[in-house]
């Protein structure tokens, strides 16, 4: 792989991040994730399997984004959606439709299936990393609860059925807040 490609991936992602209204202070992590993802993808693709390359790159991007989410207290989605930009099969979607507009249906189907394979592999990679992040934050929340009982959400008086009747709901909610 041409090492310059890492730079192109980073700069293209930075340009796109502006269109996605990403604030400048979140830009560095998104750009690093894009380069990392492209590097992993290129390495695995060179070894022979683009689908596994998409999956591995997306999983790595997902982990990095979840880590950034923990550190910066922002949704991982911010970093993830920018970092996967060089990988997402946009040109595949275009080519699928272009072949069918031109009347080449077998070609359209072939490109279409490889496009869906790429998108599926990326989505699966991201799902693996966010599932893991959710598990980790749930475990952390459960441990916090067992050590010292937190005050719990103070909803004013008269809130009727309240939160008491769904135990576990609290851990789920704090997991939700810190997972993303």
């Amino acid at each position: 792989m041409n090492p310059l490609e890492l730079l192109w991936a980073a700069l293209a992602t930075a340009g796109f991040a502006v269109l996605f209204h990403l604030r400048p202070r979140d830009l560095p992590l998104a750009v690093v994730g894009a380069s990392l993802g492209w590097w992993i993808f290129s390495a695995v693709r060179a070894a022979g399997d683009p689908a596994i390359g998409y999956f591995a790159a997306a999983a790595a991007i997902g982990f990095l984004s979840e880590l950034g989410a923990l550190v910066f207290k922002k949704p991982a989605f911010l970093y993830m959606v920018c970092s996967i930009l060089p990988l997402v099969p946009g040109s595949g979607m275009y080519n699928t439709m272009l072949q069918s507009v031109r009347g080449d249906f077998p070609g359209s189907l072939a490109i279409g299936f490889s496009t869906l394979q790429a998108a599926g592999a990326i989505a699966a990679g991201l799902a693996v990393s966010s599932a893991l992040a959710r598990l980790v934050s749930l475990a952390a929340a459960a441990r916090r609860r067992s050590v010292e009982p937190p005050p719990g959400p103070q909803i004013g008086p008269g809130s009727g059925r309240g939160f008491e009747d769904d135990s576990g709901g609290d851990a789920r909610r704090s997991g939700w807040i810190s997972a993303k």
Partner: peptide, 23 residues
């Protein structure tokens, strides 16, 4: 053409579609 059309193509959209379905 591919480079400039990247601004329009739904690469993120198809990935989000599959992510939503997985979720």
């Amino acid at each position: 053409i591919i480079g400039s059309i990247m601004l329009l193509v739904p690469g993120v959209a198809i990935t989000s579609a599959i992510r939503d379905t997985i979720a």
